[in-house]
């Protein structure tokens, strides 16, 4: 399965991926609307900055899926390809997945007061196709590739 990988040398730390991620998951048809009208828009990707170091992190869709195995409700699941998604209707916001994810990639949904969590779903539930963070990265710092054996 294709996953998002980070090319740290190319990351400028512009944080544009965070904006495009929030837009892609906002349900709005323009980025202006997403930020002007929809106060719920929030990214599932996070750019870490430390001095000259910059890189974007989101769910690795890792082979081990500790978040799925730890989920107390069954809200998190993994499909046969390895895509990890969340059914927010079944999430009770216990944060066991936050405790478990070694990459810090489960995002507490502050826009609903932390009642649920959210995460990168590789844009399969929204506009589809290539993840928006990859599509809009201006320097090729995030790529969408198949680098591993399929599970």
């Amino acid at each position: 399965m294709k996953r998002v990988y980070v090319n740290e040398n190319r990351c400028l730390g512009c944080h544009l991926c965070e904006y495009w991620c929030a837009f892609a998951n906002s349900g709005e048809d323009s980025i202006t609307k997403a930020f002007k009208l929809n106060k719920e828009a929030m990214p599932r990707i996070n750019v870490e900055d430390d001095g000259e170091i910059h890189f974007a992190v989101q769910c690795r869709h890792c082979n081990d899926t500790p978040c799925v195995k730890a989920c107390i409700t069954g809200a998190l699941s993994v499909d046969t390809e390895g895509l990890v998604t969340i059914d927010t209707e079944r999430c009770v916001g216990c944060y066991t997945c936050v405790l478990t994810c070694p990459y810090g990639c489960i995002v507490i949904d502050e826009k609903n007061g932390g009642k649920t969590v959210t995460k990168c779903e590789l844009c399969v539930k929204n506009a589809g196709g290539e993840p928006w963070c990859v599509k809009e990265c201006i320097n090729g710092a995030i790529v969408f590739e198949d680098r591993g054996v399929s599970i």
Binding site: Y5, E8, D50, F55, V57, C62, R147
Partner: peptide, 28 residues
């Protein structure tokens, strides 16, 4: 690791570049 960084900001920036690349640029 950079414990001074991670104690206030849990993240992958505190790890060595090699360890971080393993987490972010390889399938696992």
């Amino acid at each position: 690791i950079d414990f001074n960084l991670i104690k206030d900001n849990p993240g992958l920036a505190a790890f060595s570049r090699g360890r971080r690349d393993k987490k972010l640029a390889e399938f696992h």
